[in-house]
Design a protein around this nucleic acid. Structure first.
Lengths: 237, 237
DNA sequence: TCTTCGTGACGAACAGTGTTCTCCCATGGA
DNA sequence: TCCATGGGAGAACACTGTTCGTCACGAAGA
């Protein structure tokens, strides 16, 4: 991992080679996006700045703006790169509910496997990048295969996506190794609040702080998919 | 060297009065929070900086740190102030579903009536401020009155809160007077993408971009509350 | 009444941020 | 061989949240 620094003091006639060689590849949109994802994986979203990405590529922040229009666009591209990993399957009317759940579980997992990248997903605009639209397309096909009408499927795909990104974000902020310690602190705090004003919260402290992981995600997923299934006239429950 | 600029040229014996009079009220936590909310109402979340709050109160940013620990804490306090406006009612087992919906509708409205304040709500930690906890307490009571067991009620209050803040945020970012123009641009974009790769999206463009408002919120609300109601053993559907 | 003392106020500064301007120079086409 | 084009990059701009050190003022003590 030679950086650009050791160029100082080199003989003049080496300079051309030295300038051509260390730039292993010319800067490109793809390389920038990959570098950004590497930084998120290694240091988290808070560490992701344009200067940091430039540094990762042995250059400065200004050079990036020839290939990406803004940081916001860069984040969209990073998200799209991650979305590309999500496995898609053709819609099957016989098992559409399980297909939808699987797709959302995979989406959640893809986001969570890159630290707190989900933060970018919640703040992002309505997704218009290719792979994000592939996912939406697939999910729409599944919902339609399940018999949902156009408007319900449209609302549904939005609702399910919102749920998945929001819970992934929530999980990633309190994620990591200190989950135990986090729920512990919350539980301690609940022990200090006045029980006469908050009888429910104090008495349910354990239930409220239990399991911030998969189980809670599955809980909401079941409710949402079952709720959508009940919208189809022929048979729900 | 004289430090403060605007004091220049004033007679010396006026100085004490001049410094005492313009400070109409002493800085306080409450005044700071109110000023911050005024700024959000007038200029939106992006304009809310510590310097801007200081300016609103005729002082600098540094002075605020004697009363609030950080900007994050300030945002929590602003949210709590807004949550204080939300009307609460005692839980009634006969009509708990409508009560829950009403409460969430009011919460959504409270957030949306302050520009894009919902942005603070999505990023915020699990709410621990008094009025936020009043809402959680009330909602838990309603869910329990509906017959939900402890764990389901705990998951439920979290799920419903997440849904409300997330959709309020989504609505506020594309909100304002340019909603028409926004959906129009999305619809135009959908017309340019390849129909053979995205048959669902292109054919459902109208349904996908229709009504970013109350109707979509009600759609998800119905599904969630009905889904929770079905969790109680005695009678759901 | 005079003096000390603690505390809120606050200007300046620090270490960042995203983005733009402007110049430099290597490369490809003529 | 010459020149134009366009990417690379340093510096600068206008910000951000936060901390430091100083300063003035009201209250308590002598």
């Amino acid at each position: 991992m030679t950086s650009a620094a050791p160029r100082s003091g080199w003989p003049e006639h080496w300079r051309d080679k030295a300038k051509a060689a260390p730039r292993r590849q010319p800067l490109s949109r793809e390389r920038i996006v990959e570098a950004a994802l590497r930084i998120v994986d290694a240091e988290g979203m808070d560490a992701l700045s344009m200067r940091r990405v430039g540094q990762e590529l042995g250059t400065g922040a200004a050079s990036l703006y020839a290939h990406v229009g803004s940081k916001e666009e860069l984040l969209e591209l990073v998200l799209d790169l991650v979305y590309a990993d999500i496995e898609l399957e053709p819609a099957d009317p016989e098992r559409w509910q399980e297909q939808v759940k699987r797709l959302l579980r995979n989406s959640r997992e893809a986001l969570l496997s890159h630290r707190d990248l989900a933060k970018a997903a919640v703040v992002a605009n309505v997704p218009v990048t290719p792979h994000a639209m592939d996912i939406a397309e697939t999910m729409l096909a599944m919902l339609r295969a399940g018999g949902l009408d156009e408007q319900t499927a449209a609302y549904g795909v939005d609702l399910l996506g919102l749920y998945t990104t929001a819970t992934a974000f929530e999980a990633s902020t309190r994620g990591g190794a200190d989950t135990q310690e986090f729920t512990g602190r919350i539980r301690d705090y609940f022990a200090t609040i006045p029980a006469e004003r908050y009888p429910m919260i104090t008495s349910m402290a354990v239930a409220l702080t239990r399991n911030v992981g998969e189980e809670r995600f599955e809980f909401g997923l079941d409710i949402l998919v079952a709720g959508l299934a009940r919208q189809v006239p022929d048979g729900g429950a």
